[in-house]
Design a protein around this nucleic acid. Structure first.
Lengths: 151, 151
DNA sequence: CTGACTGCAAAATGTTTGCAGATTC
DNA sequence: GAATCTGCAAACATTTTGCAGTCAG
C-alpha cells in the first residue's frame, strides 16, 4: 500500500504531468487537515492560511480535478451549486445524513447496505464503480430543539 | 387522492400565493411530458415549444422552487452545477444508476433498501425526509460493448 | 530547451434578484 | 385596490479558459 503522496506522484508521472510545488502544497494541505469535507473555497483558504506563497484559485480547481481523477478525493454534490470534495485516502466508503435545519453532516457506513446495493446492481446487469447516498432530514439535536420551541 | 393540479392550487392558496397562467402552463407542461428528468433549461424549451405566450426564465426557476416545495417535483443533483428535477407525481420513490460511459439513467426501487435506510436512520436518531441514492458505474450495454472492443 | 503549469483577468455557466408594469384575488 | 407576479436585465456565485510568463523534466 503506497502513501497518498506516492500515489499522486505516480499518477502525474504516468500521465506525463508535472510534480509542481503548488500541487504538492495542495495535497499536503488536504492530508494534514482533519476536515473530511470541503469545497474549493475552503481549500483555497486552508492552503493559503499556512503563510508561504499563494496558490491561485485556478490551480486549486485544476488540482482538485486531478485528485478526483486519481481517486484521492471524491467529488460530491452535497448542496446546490457548490461541489464538495471528500478525502478517500481515509478508511472505507461512507454515506451521509444531512440535516435540513442545521446543515450538519452525519457520516455512517453499513456493510449491509453495500451488499444490498451490489445485489440490486447485479439484477440490472450494472457494474457499480461508486455510489452516493444522501439522506436528508432532521438530526437528533434539531428534532429535540423543535420539540421544545413548538408554538 | 387529489390530482397534481389540485394539489398545486391548494398549496398556492394555503400560502396566499396566486394561481397564475404561467404557473399553470408550467405545471401542465410537466404533467404532459413523458420525460422523467429535466433541468430548468429543458423545461423552458418544453413550455415555450407549444406556441402560446412565452414564459420567462425567471418564472420557470421560481415555479420550479414552488413545485419542489409542495412535493410535486424533487430537486436532484445528478450532474455538476445543473439542478435536475424529477416528477414525483408518478409512482413511488426510486433511485438511480448512472452509466459513466453513456450517461444512461436506470431507475430502480427497492422496499428492502428503504427499510434498511430507515433502520440506519433510527440508529442515529435521525428523522429522514428524503434521500438520494446514485450508483455510478457501467451499464449492461456499455459493458458488452467494452468487452468486444477491448484492444 | 520544450512542454506543461501558474496566476491573472476575463468569460462562461447556472441561478437569483430588483424593479416597473401587469395580474390575481 | 392591495398584494403578488411577471419579464427583463443586471447581479451573483462558482467554475472554466486564454494567455503571457515561469518552471519541471
Amino acid at each position: 500500500m503506497q502513501s497518498a503522496h506516492e500515489a499522486f506522484v505516480d499518477y502525474l508521472r504516468h500521465k506525463g504531468l508535472k510534480v509542481t510545488q503548488q500541487r504538492l502544497r495542495i495535497l499536503n494541505t488536504i492530508l494534514q487537515t482533519s476536515r473530511a469535507h470541503f469545497n474549493a473555497e475552503d481549500l483555497m483558504e486552508m492552503v493559503n492560511a499556512s503563510g508561504q506563497a499563494r496558490v491561485s484559485r485556478s490551480s486549486v480547481y485544476r488540482t482538485l480535478e486531478l485528485l478526483n481523477d486519481c481517486g484521492l478525493l471524491r467529488k460530491e454534490l452535497l448542496r446546490d451549486q457548490v461541489s464538495h470534495y471528500e478525502k478517500t485516502s481515509a478508511e472505507e466508503h461512507h454515506d451521509h445524513m444531512i440535516c435540513n435545519l442545521c446543515g450538519r453532516i452525519i457520516e455512517f457506513s453499513s456493510g449491509e447496505l453495500e451488499a444490498l446495493q451490489d445485489k440490486l446492481c447485479r439484477e440490472q446487469g450494472f457494474t457499480p464503480e461508486s455510489h452516493v447516498l444522501h439522506i436528508r432530514g432532521i438530526c437528533r439535536a434539531c428534532a429535540a430543539k423543535q420539540g421544545k420551541s413548538r408554538a
